[in-house]
């Protein structure tokens, strides 16, 4: 039973109450109606009515009406209780469904955002790895270039200083055995080769 059923039950209870009140008013209204011109008949009828609907009968009717009303009230209360239980259970079910649906939606959004974040993280890591790889390759090339340059520089330096290296080696190897007296002819020959320039420079002066 939904809310409409509950409203129908309430309307029924209210209608029964109204009918009882109306009956009571009708009964009291009949007393006023006996004041018609035909007063004797009416009084007679009233007396008959009084005789028929005496206090005991009225009391019995009242009791019957009260019992009937209590019965109706009890039944309707029972129906209302059932409807309330049903409504409560439906409401619980509805709430459960709605909450589950909401939670599932939120969870799916959460899962989606986690997936997005994960994807972004993976993309970021991939980009970082690519950048690192690129950097590594670039550094490798630079290192190779530097090594090549250093090698060329060393070779060039070696070639430039080859005379000094050999001279140093000769000095270290046989330096003690080189006698200056043995070199005299060699020295004189070298000076002889430059004799003209030396004479010219000495004659030119400072």
């Amino acid at each position: 039973m939904d809310i409409f059923g509950l409203a129908a039950v309430l309307i029924g209870i209210v209608a029964a109450t109204m009918a009882f009140i109306w009956l009571a008013l009708r009964v009291s209204g009949g007393a006023h109606a006996s004041r018609n011109p035909n007063a004797s008949h009416l009084d007679q009828a009233e007396k008959d009515v009084e005789h028929i609907f005496n206090d005991e009968f009225r009391e019995e009717l009242r009791n019957r009406g009260r019992l009937h009303f209590e019965k109706i009230i009890g039944e309707n209360a029972m129906f209302l209780q059932q409807d309330l239980r049903l409504t409560t259970s439906q409401l619980n079910e509805f709430m459960k469904t709605e909450i589950t649906k909401k939670l599932q939606g939120e969870f799916s959004k959460y899962e989606e955002s986690i997936t997005d974040a994960k994807q972004m993280a993976i993309e970021s890591i991939t980009k970082t790895q690519e950048a690192i790889e690129e950097q590594r390759q670039m550094m490798g090339q630079q290192l190779l270039q530097e090594i090549e340059n250093e090698k060329s520089r060393m070779v060039k330096r070696f070639e430039e200083n080859l005379g000094d290296i050999v001279n140093h080696y000769v000095l270290a190897a046989i330096g003690n055995q080189i006698d200056l007296n043995d070199q005299l002819d060699y020295i004189i020959a070298d000076i002889e080769a430059n004799k003209e320039v030396i004479i010219q420079d000495l004659s030119d002066g400072a």
Binding site: L171, Q183, D190, D204
Partner: peptide, 21 residues
């Protein structure tokens, strides 16, 4: 090493073995 280096008024003549190398 060997040889000599001669320096005149304005010039230097490196007649050494080092220069020869």
């Amino acid at each position: 090493g060997a040889g000599c280096v001669v320096r005149s008024t304005n010039k230097v003549f490196d007649l050494s073995l080092r220069e020869d190398f």
